[in-house]
Simulated scan of single mutants.
Amino acid sequence: MENTTSKDPLHGITLKKILEDLVAYYGFDTLGELIKIKCFIENPSVKSSLTFLRKTDWARKKVEELYIRTLPKLK
């Protein structure tokens, strides 16, 4: 069997980890400016944001795109 590695930069990374890393790096205030969604602006929390992002594909896609752009800064 061949060992193949995924070319997906998000392979193996949970949405919770993505969100926690972005909140640690930017904070909810800056996240709300970068991605204008209510769960980052009004009474933000990781739990409520995860609930919204798991239900809303377009918002999750924006968060994942920001994470990919931010990834080099996180390492």
Score class of each variant (00 low, 15 high):
residue 28 F to W: 13
residue 13 I to Q: 05
residue 2 E to W: 01
residue 70 T to A: 10
residue 51 T to S: 12
residue 12 G to L: 03
residue 25 Y to C: 08
residue 11 H to G: 02
residue 5 T to L: 07
residue 14 T to W: 11
residue 55 K to Y: 02
residue 5 T to E: 07
residue 6 S to N: 01
residue 37 I to W: 12
residue 39 C to H: 04
residue 41 I to Y: 10
residue 10 L to I: 12
residue 45 S to N: 11
residue 4 T to M: 14
residue 65 E to S: 01
residue 56 T to H: 01
residue 8 D to A: 10
residue 47 K to A: 10
residue 67 Y to S: 12
residue 17 K to R: 09
residue 12 G to P: 12
residue 33 E to P: 10
residue 31 L to P: 00
residue 9 P to L: 00
residue 13 I to D: 10
residue 24 A to E: 02
residue 22 L to F: 14
residue 73 K to R: 15
residue 2 E to F: 04
residue 53 L to C: 00
residue 68 I to P: 12
residue 59 A to N: 04
residue 26 Y to G: 12
residue 29 D to P: 03
residue 59 A to L: 07
residue 48 S to H: 09
residue 56 T to L: 09
residue 5 T to R: 14
residue 28 F to S: 05
residue 75 K to A: 12
residue 39 C to N: 04
residue 19 L to C: 13
residue 39 C to G: 01
residue 63 V to Q: 05
residue 19 L to S: 00
residue 23 V to M: 06
residue 37 I to S: 06
residue 22 L to E: 00
residue 42 E to T: 13
residue 53 L to S: 06
residue 24 A to C: 03
residue 69 R to G: 04
residue 50 L to A: 09
residue 54 R to E: 13
residue 22 L to D: 02
residue 21 D to P: 15
residue 73 K to E: 13
residue 63 V to A: 08
residue 30 T to R: 11
residue 63 V to D: 08
residue 20 E to K: 05
residue 7 K to I: 15
residue 35 I to Y: 06
residue 41 I to G: 04
residue 15 L to C: 07
residue 69 R to Q: 13
residue 70 T to Y: 11
residue 22 L to H: 00
residue 71 L to Y: 14
residue 21 D to E: 12
residue 4 T to R: 10
residue 22 L to W: 06
residue 42 E to W: 01
residue 13 I to K: 11
residue 56 T to E: 09
residue 20 E to W: 04
residue 34 L to S: 07
residue 9 P to V: 06
residue 16 K to W: 13
residue 73 K to D: 13
residue 21 D to H: 08
residue 51 T to R: 11
residue 28 F to E: 02
residue 71 L to C: 07
residue 32 G to N: 08
residue 12 G to Y: 04
residue 73 K to T: 12
residue 1 M to V: 00
residue 66 L to T: 15
residue 33 E to Y: 06
residue 12 G to N: 08
residue 53 L to Y: 08
residue 52 F to K: 13
residue 21 D to A: 13
residue 18 I to E: 08
residue 1 M to G: 15
residue 54 R to P: 05
residue 15 L to T: 03
residue 5 T to G: 06
residue 17 K to E: 10
residue 51 T to K: 10
residue 55 K to S: 12
residue 30 T to Q: 15
residue 18 I to R: 05
residue 72 P to D: 11
residue 31 L to A: 09
residue 38 K to W: 07
residue 23 V to R: 01
residue 3 N to I: 15
residue 74 L to R: 10
residue 18 I to W: 01
residue 26 Y to W: 08
residue 36 K to C: 10
residue 36 K to P: 04
residue 43 N to K: 03
residue 63 V to N: 00
residue 58 W to L: 13
residue 28 F to V: 10
residue 69 R to P: 00
residue 49 S to P: 01
residue 31 L to H: 00
residue 54 R to A: 03
residue 50 L to R: 07
residue 12 G to K: 06
residue 70 T to F: 02
residue 40 F to T: 09
residue 72 P to T: 11
residue 3 N to M: 10
residue 71 L to N: 08
residue 27 G to T: 02
residue 30 T to K: 14
residue 26 Y to E: 02
residue 48 S to C: 05
residue 41 I to F: 04
residue 45 S to V: 06
